[in-house]
Design a protein around this nucleic acid. Structure first.
Length: 464
RNA sequence: GUCCCCAUCGUCUAGUGGCCUAGGACACUGGCCUUUCACGCCGGCGACCGGGGUUCGAAUCCCCGUGGGGACGCCA
């Protein structure tokens, strides 16, 4: 069994493409087949090397390794031209000199008149020869029915009269998609073509080309589209669509993979899947037929799940670049690891984790104005002073020891722990929301804590 | 417009004629825990698009509507 993923290098790998690649990859791994990567770069104008690289990077980041390739379609034009010639020789294709402008005008007219815009066959029987601006068209049968057997959608049949004589070779001598894809898939021995729903209408034309060329027709599987919240095709308007943008936003590849696979596919009530689970459980029969709407909240939830489940060293390795990006000194790995552990249950993304951990790495506390106005006041400064004074004498400097210390202080002062904790919290982190104050104090260490508290006291004494 | 496809909570989905007073998850929401937040735990809200059939019995099968998506390029 051989499958392929065949993106065109005209942009980044997007969410939809990634899911198609993932389904291909899982199906192939499940059945022990060979996964081929082919770059469809026959559009000379829009294909770029940067896009190719970006797509490869994204595939790698997601863990979708390929067994063969990447092959570049544009490097195979000689083969494509041979096959075009073969069709011409056999009378199954012909030259056409209709201009793009004429065709466009005819298309518009047909649409306006409520007809299906379809090539009128003007050059079909002219017996034209190759000329500088001629293209080659495939001679489509005008009657009969072509049926596609789809692994996801079941049988779909098309009346051949609906199909038209599509261009298979452009004036620039490069093959068009519908032709190149057939030649390449056939010659690369692809047995299962798993791709987006938007290709369903291309399939009958492709089947006809397979047959004209004497190739065996592969099995198809068309996966439904991913839509945005307004049910329109997913686009930038709905937020990030590039896979690598999710890496930058602090998502784990496991989360994206898990989210994407559940978009259209399910396995009973299971929500969380490891790659191993997926390889064992995945099947195209369980892929739904209807389009799915991309839901960023659920992806966020999964990301949080994977951050929570991530092994300690791995989590540290993952956040570190995000901290470095903020120019924090994270050279003390033991300290950084403690900070990461402390932040994990309250971070939905690595970016969030990096941001909320700023107080661990910056000497200067960035006080939230509202928090400071409420707690860094002469009313509460006494709490800070007593903490700073007595902290050096706290022998049991642990989470429990610190909590006991703060509680006894509250009792002594006739107040609730809450008020002391919040004041200290703002002094140490700059905000009213943070991890447990005792945990923070343990990780920061006595010296750092005292320094930060003294600085807060100075700030209050200076009048805010 | 023409052709193709699809249709269960707001969203992702379970469900393949009786197990369904329709299950799970996200989101939302009430409570518990609590030094704030988060996590966690317990509870709540919330759907079979409509109409006809078939059947003893339909979310499940058929037909017609309606709605949504896709395709209609010398893009892929």
């Amino acid at each position: 069994m051989r499958t392929r993923f065949a993106p065109s290098p005209t942009g980044f790998l997007h969410i939809g493409g990634a899911r198609t690649a993932l389904f291909n990859w899982l199906y192939t791994r499940r059945h022990g087949g060979t996964f081929v990567l082919r770059i469809e770069d026959t559009d000379q104008l829009r294909s770029t090397d940067e896009s190719t690289r970006a797509i490869l990077d994204a595939m790698t980041w997601l863990g979708l390794n390929w067994d063969e390739g990447p092959y570049f379609q544009a490097e195979r034009v000689v083969v494509h031209r041979q096959m075009v010639q073969k069709l011409i020789d056999e009378g199954k294709a012909y030259y056409c000199t209709c201009s793009s402008e004429d065709l466009e005008a005819k298309r518009k007219k047909a649409m306006a008149e409520g007809r299906k815009p379809k090539y009128d066959g003007a050059c079909r029987e002219k017996g034209l020869r190759r000329s500088p601006d001629s293209v080659v068209r495939f001679r489509c049968p005008e009657m009969g029915v072509t049926v596609m057997h789809d692994l996801i959608k079941g049988n779909i049949s098309f009346n051949n009269e609906e199909l038209d004589d599509l261009i298979i070779e452009r004036a620039d001598g490069y093959p068009t998609y519908n032709f190149a894809v057939v030649v390449d898939d056939a010659q690369m021995g692809i047995t299962h073509v798993i791709r987006g729903d938007d290709h369903v209408n291309n399939t009958p034309k492709q089947i006809l080309i397979y047959e004209a060329l004497g190739y065996e027709v592969p099995l198809f599987g068309h996966v439904p589209m991913i839509l945005g919240s307004d049910r329109a095709r997913l686009s930038k308007r709905h937020g990030a669509t590039s896979v690598m943008a999710y890496q930058e936003m602090g998502y784990l590849p496991e989360a994206l993979v898990n989210y994407l696979v559940r978009l259209g596919w399910s396995h009973g009530d299971q929500e969380i899947f490891t790659i191993e689970d997926l390889i064992h459980a995945f099947s195209l029969e369980a892929v739904g037929k209807s389009p799915a709407i991309f839901n960023p909240e659920k992806l966020l939830w999964l990301n949080q799940h994977y951050i929570t489940a991530c092994p300690e060293e791995k989590l540290l390795a993952l956040v570190t670049p995000f901290w470095e990006r903020k120019e924090f000194d994270v050279s003390d790995r033991r300290y950084a690891a403690l900070a990461a552990e402390n932040l994990r249950t309250r971070s939905k993304t690595l970016v969030e984790m990096a941001d909320s951990g700023a107080f661990y790495f910056r000497e200067e506390v960035d006080y939230d104005p509202e928090a400071a106005a409420k707690f860094l006041t002469t009313e509460y400064v006494g709490y800070l002073e007593v903490v700073a004074e007595r902290l050096p004498g706290v022998a049991n400097y642990t989470k429990d020891g610190i909590e006991a210390f703060l509680r006894s202080l509250a009792e002594e002062r006739g107040t609730k722990l809450k008020w002391i904790a919040q004041t200290v919290r703002v002094a140490l982190t700059g905000r009213t929301v943070s991890p447990g104050i005792d945990e923070i104090m343990v990780i920061l260490g006595k010296e750092r804590v005292i320094r930060k508290i003294r600085r807060a006291i100075d700030r209050i004494r200076a009048g805010g």
